[in-house]
Design a binder for these strands. Sequence first.
DNA 1: TTATTTGACTTTCTTTGACCTTTGTTTGAC
DNA 2: GTCAAACAAAGGTCAAAGAAAGTCAAATAA
Lengths: 152, 152
Amino acid sequence: MKTISDIIEEFILSQLEDGEINLSRNELANFFNCAPSQINYVLTTRFTPMKGYDVESKRGGGGYIKIVKYTTSDKIEHINHLINNYIRDAIDYNNAVMILENLLTNNIIDEKEYKIIVTAISNKSLANPTNIENKIRAKILTNILREICKEE
Amino acid sequence: MKTISDIIEEFILSQLEDGEINLSRNELANFFNCAPSQINYVLTTRFTPMKGYDVESKRGGGGYIKIVKYTTSDKIEHINHLINNYIRDAIDYNNAVMILENLLTNNIIDEKEYKIIVTAISNKSLANPTNIENKIRAKILTNILREICKEE
DNA sequence: TTATTTGACTTTCTTTGACCTTTGTTTGAC
DNA sequence: GTCAAACAAAGGTCAAAGAAAGTCAAATAA
């Protein structure tokens, strides 16, 4: 027996053209006569990054939920492999840099992008994780900008 | 669904020639059939100094609102200004994105770099600052890689 | 047990309107 | 004619209401 979640999933899949769809949570919930949070349930259980989906949203007036499906390719295979086997839920700086070097030699990122990312994850950026998100973010952004300054 | 604020923003952008525009708050509000204060809302949320806009105005008869978009050729000056005046030691996500948009419009970063950095500082990356540097790093890196995946 | 459904409560963004301040223009006493 | 008072014409502020989406835990179903 199909659950309502299965049906909502199918519906979304059928609508997902060009690998992208914009929808309204309330409208959808209304259409399927379910609680709005059921839509979130479907999204978190069926449209996960592991399955190749990315979900973005905005609250408030004019709010929306956007689902992007990225089609698989060698590049994505490669990156998924790195994420699942080497990064997992923790990675130290040196190993992270090795992964980035790998991406660089495979032309998945260029020199400048490499530098940006190395900066983002450097100890300089991540030092002092004082539980205050905005402070960490400021550090990351400041460091990336300083890095960009250095060029030429 | 686009909000009226989005539409007003687009209109202003389309009119903003030579990086400068003069407009009447009441006329605009009338044109878009909205409250005059809605214009202020659009200005304060979308035409911020961080994005490189300056808004001046004058009240009374013959009053006006003037919007100027500043661009720069001195990359280093520009970046230092952003760091010292807007980033400082803490910045929230929305303001950080405005700064990145500023860099994008000034051709200091390109689309892909923009996406990488937005990802690095997104709440998705920074959530759960559990005091464990490597875990945060893993999240940042994972998110950046997923972002890169999305292209083409 | 595990997966699904529901609903109360929270957070974020937008819209509206009442009231405020500043600036320019008329008007009337002198 | 001058000048201050009154009036008109902008724009500014702020808080309340409205519109979405998010979270989380309890209830239910498989």
